[in-house]
């Protein structure tokens, strides 16, 4: 019994320790970000790797999620004779929750894991040390551009995800089922508020972008420099990112939509 408590205690302590470490790393990234912004092409390159290469999976998944939402939404709403409201349902569920969250989860497993793997391998092959010995700060040259690439990509990807999802819902509702096109859009517009729904969703996805990018670069930079260490770090990136996204989503939702 005492053993369990001891284990829990040490787990909690190492968790707090890790949190402090990651916070210090975050401050370091911010401190050296200026240097990496001076040479924008480094960040643009990372935008390509984390943004453009995630585009396909985001667009396709967004479409499918929208199609499913359309079908389920119609199934439920037609019981109450209000199938025109399916545009509202699809748009609100995508903008507020599914867009940022699902896009964030996909982004973590597609781009976050790749960033961790890349930085981890650079550490294994002593490239980071070599850079440091050449008086080039690896945090400014390698970590910060990857971090900002992720932070910028994430809200754009989430917006594309939601847009594709709404398109999918429209496809099911208007094209296949025959909901009135005008009613679909006007009901949606009447119910969706720019500040409360769209901006809050964008804010959420930006926070997820910071979280995923930070976890990804940290796990890569902090990994044990062996093949096994890198593979563990990649797993940790995906798992911690998913947990961070879902936990942060709960916290933000309870603040944003309180009393509405």
């Amino acid at each position: 019994m005492g053993d369990v408590f001891r284990k829990l205690g040490s787990l909690a302590i190492s968790g707090v320790w890790q949190l402090g470490f990651i916070a210090r790393f975050f401050v370091l990234i911010l401190r050296y970000s200026g240097q990496s912004f001076m040479r924008l092409h480094l960040t643009i390159r990372e935008l390509y790797f984390s943004g453009v290469l995630s585009l396909l999976i985001i667009l396709v998944s967004g479409l499918f999620v929208g199609l499913v939402l359309g079908l389920q939404g119609y199934e439920i709403l037609q019981r109450y004779g209000s199938s025109e409201a399916m545009g509202t349902m699809v748009a609100l569920s995508l903008l507020r929750e599914l867009g940022p969250v699902v896009a964030g989860l996909l982004f973590a497993s597609r781009a976050g894991s790749a960033v961790t793997a890349e930085i981890g391998l650079m550490k294994v092959t002593e490239q980071l040390k070599a850079m440091d010995m050449m008086a080039v700060n690896p945090i400014a040259r390698v970590v910060a551009p990857r971090f900002w690439g992720g932070v910028v990509s994430m809200p754009l990807l989430a917006a594309l995800f939601s847009t594709m999802g709404i398109f999918g819902g429209w496809l099911i509702g208007v094209v296949f089922i025959g909901v009135d096109d005008g009613a679909f859009w006007s009901q949606m517009r009447a119910a969706v508020d720019f500040r409360y729904d769209v901006l809050n969703g964008v804010f959420k996805s930006a926070v997820f972008g910071v979280a995923v990018a930070l976890i990804a670069v940290f796990e890569g930079y902090d990994c044990v420099p062996t093949a096994e260490g890198v593979s563990r770090a990649i797993t940790r990136t995906v798992v911690s990112s998913a947990l961070a996204i879902l936990a942060l989503d709960f916290v933000m939702t309870s603040f944003m939509f309180r009393g509405l």
Partner: peptide
């Protein structure tokens, strides 16, 4: 330290070339 390191060169065991 970085100013000093610019005047130092270190060759790592397996080269540590930037693979990208």
């Amino acid at each position: 330290l970085y100013t000093l390191r610019r005047r130092m060169g270190m060759l790592f065991q397996f080269g540590a070339l930037f693979t990208d």
